[in-house]
Nucleic acid binder design. Structure first.
Lengths: 339, 339
DNA sequence: TTGTAAGCGTTATCAC
DNA sequence: GTGATAACGCTTACAA
């Protein structure tokens, strides 16, 4: 394996010059560069990146912490991160945390040991205080997270407003008993979506009926179970807002299981607009999150930090969109109730 | 940032001893180890992995080349790889190739520049000849691939047999005009599934009617379009075998669009058993591929290579399974046709 | 069991 | 514009 000194010898120059040709070609005379290039060619020389990284104490690698890459939502975000990273010559190290706080925290070792230049955390579970400590020492960015103290850049949508929009849509369709299957309420983004739901209900004078509220965990199964429970009680909803598409689909299947038709008997609005939402039967009305763009944006912010640029704005809210399909019944219904 | 020499000084030993404590603790007297450990603790010392990797010319990192991480199939496999890798102290570098041969080939640079110790390629597009060249120089393993010359370990299912099983299932249900929407036939695994279909048809004396064959590209859209075309011609199928679940779902939606009911008017069998298959309406009968395990197995094989163990068996076929749900009509039908 | 010291291949700081 | 040369922080013969 040819090394830089071999190239230098063959080209009749010093290693310093070879290094310059590689990393700063303008600083060297064209004739010299040509000689070096030829020697590189001839020897099939490839720089030893390990030596380079060691010498420069940088890796051009960033770490992405994902609760679970098998979840389509995170896979989409990672796709966006990867695209932006590779455009800028960065590589992406992937780590599943399986929602384990310990695994999240343990990954900080990668930063401490200089194995990566920075980190993006998706839906972090870690205490904010700890994240702040890490952020003081290393470049990190969060995605699909919401922080009280805004000292770490994070990328998200306006979850409260989105929850409000989804609920309001059902209200405009004339529904009064609207159920909510939220995400885990210890997660700020779940809390916010739920807050949006409450606010819309209260604003429109419908009040919040605790019997119509369930706390799910974003999974299909939890949507199915909570909907089954909602439909088996006396006070049944005519509509439901589910805080994830997986739960929304679970809810619809649960309704079908007891012969309730969607949207005729039950209107459903989901959240996320996963690829499957439009393929499902009925196609899902849902809040579309720009996952891919969120990934790109998170990487953009991290790049700024890595380049030493100041990042002043901490809350980066991307715009979501209510995508109206069949599951809410809006298309079947001729007239929208005037509010 | 404390370095090894600082620890050595504080502990009153040489750096060699500190290094031993870190990598080979049995080789050092307990008392000395204790002193060193305390110094490490006190200085909050973290080894500089870049220096370590450089010195040892190894990175404990492997590269995973994925056509597109946003595709659930690949995300599942990557999940399996990551799990196995992290258990063995390896890290996973992720790269989307976007199905570009160039990007695939370019990634070999990572190996040449020693940025990773080995590589797993998912559904590689590269010529076999090139892959062999790479494999001669670096440890690589393939997944969801099929090779003629078996000199590179690869993990897959028996695609031909699976195609056969899926088709035979439809034949047993009494269907005679069974359509096939294949994957891209330049991919060996698509070709094999298609071969399985043909063989089943011929074996049961049904022959192969070219008017019932379409070449798709695994996407929902292609399934939708090809099914629309199949249903608009005179010779209509009563059943269809689609080489991916995405295409199967596209086919079902296309059938619904022209008021054909599944499974009553059209029986459908898909392929992959993506998470969504069981959530869909109707739930999909499909060939379940063990994606997560395929990822794990691929990583196991790579680990062997990395540890210098001989890998003799090249074809690693994992077992798939025909999962019978609603879309094929088996559950509605009382009697299965005796063959 | 421990210490000494020579690298690993690159980059950066000086001179020239 | 180019060349010497000293790091970078760790590992590993080899010596003690």
């Amino acid at each position: 394996m040819a090394k830089m000194s071999d190239v230098a010898k063959l080209a009749g120059v010093s290693t310093a010059t070879v290094s310059r040709v590689l990393r700063n070609p303008e600083a060297v005379k064209p004739v010299t560069k040509a000689k070096v290039d030829q020697a590189i060619e001839q020897l099939n020389y490839e720089p030893n990146m390990l030596a380079r990284h060691f010498r420069r104490t940088e890796t051009n690698t960033i770490l992405v912490l994902v609760p679970n890459i098998r979840n389509t939502v995170f896979a989409e975000i990672v796709g966006g991160i990867e695209e932006e990273a590779s455009v800028h010559g960065y590589r992406v190290l992937l780590r599943n945390t399986n929602n384990q706080f310990g695994s999240e925290y343990g990954s900080v070792e990668h930063l401490k040991q200089r194995q990566v230049d920075g980190m993006i955390m998706l839906s972090p579970k870690m205490e904010e205080r700890l994240m702040l400590e890490i952020s003081n020492e290393f470049p990190i960015v969060l995605a699909t997270a919401h922080l009280a103290s805004s000292n770490i850049p994070f990328v998200s949508i306006d979850n409260k407003k989105s929850g409000w929009k989804a609920t309001e849509h059902l209200i405009r369709l004339g529904h009064k008993r609207i159920a909510c299957i939220s995400g885990p309420l210890r997660m700020p983004l779940s809390e916010l979506r739920y807050e949006g739901y409450r606010q819309a209900m209260i604003e429109h004078g419908l009040g919040v009926d605790e019997r119509l509220i369930r706390e799910g965990d974003f999974t299909y199964e939890s949507g199915y179970e909570h909907m089954t429970s909602l439909l088996s009680q006396a006070e049944r909803p005519t509509a439901v807002f589910a805080a994830s598409d997986d739960m929304a689909i679970g809810a619809i299947n649960a309704a079908s299981a007891v012969e309730w038709k969607v949207p005729e008997d039950l209107a459903v609005v989901g959240f996320d607009n996963i690829q499957f939402a439009s393929m499902y039967n009925p196609p899902l009305t849902t809040i579309a999150q720009p996952f891919f763009d969120m990934g790109k944006r998170a990487m953009e912010l991290l790049l700024k930090k890595l380049n030493g640029e100041e990042v002043t704005k901490m809350e980066h809210l991307l715009s979501d969109e209510l995508v109206i399909r069949e599951s809410c019944g809006a298309k079947q219904q001729k007239k929208v109730v005037p509010l």
